[in-house]
Amino acid sequence: MNRSAPERVTATVSRAPGTTPLGQAAKFTVLFVLAALFLLPMYVLLVTAFKPFDEATAARAWLLPQSWSLQGWAAAWDALAPGLWNSVQMVVPSAILSAVLGSMNGFVLARWRFPGADTVFTLFLFGMFIPYQAVMIPLQQTMVEAGLMGGLFPLILAHTVYGIPICTLIFRNYYATIPHTLIEAARVDGAGLLRTYRSVILPVSAPVFAVTLIWQFTSAWNDFLFAVFLTGPNTWPVTVQLNNVAGSMVVPYNQQMAAAVLASLPTLVIYLVLGRYFMRGLMAGALKG
């Protein structure tokens, strides 16, 4: 998996001199040690999650379970299920909305520019870096006073708006690679903006939609800050639920760890299955097209 473009050069590079068998062995050793360190937290998560309650103690913490148990998972599922569902209901619309808006913006900013487009783009980009805290108090007050605090709408709105900048960036950088001639041809045919967008741009946009949807899905799913400010017990997404479960030390470790895995599963699965698109989103986050 993860066959991203840069990888294609590896075939030539690997023949480069200077990579002795000994050097290779040393490299592998270092990498395996690092991999083991990286896996350590994941090991603890999984191992503890599969332990029955009375085995999830300090003394046996690092050992494999003596008897594998789903007890922790069941309890975690009960505690998290409403949150998982809230997250799905919140993440899907906001990912789609940001992606659609981002695609429209990206097209215009790359290929159908208007006076001041650069300023708009810069202001959008800065929006990508703004700490949520800087808008949190007014946002919360607005939602409270508009009487919207009971539902998921405030959170959907927040994630949609804060997803626009990165989606715009990703789409714009992608559309900038579409040859001018294609668009000019459409214009000569008398196609207006909408038709050009629909007939020339959209058909080639599928991979970028995948990138932005995944990116938005992941970041909205993993968000905690907007969620604590903008939701209540009935609308808590999974991160807040998880923090409530794990935040109190009363909950046994097996259940805490199982809950942490459950809450991360959707994004992890997407990462493993669609890693290529995930990577592109990451790279775009670094303003690299």
């Binding site: 409270v144 209540g232 017990p233």
Partner: peptide, 15 residues
């Protein structure tokens, strides 16, 4: 409105 920290409850109530 809120269990645990109950923080948003305050905001909603104040609002």
């Amino acid at each position: 409105v809120a269990g645990g920290s109950g923080t948003n409850a305050q905001a909603v109530l104040e609002g």
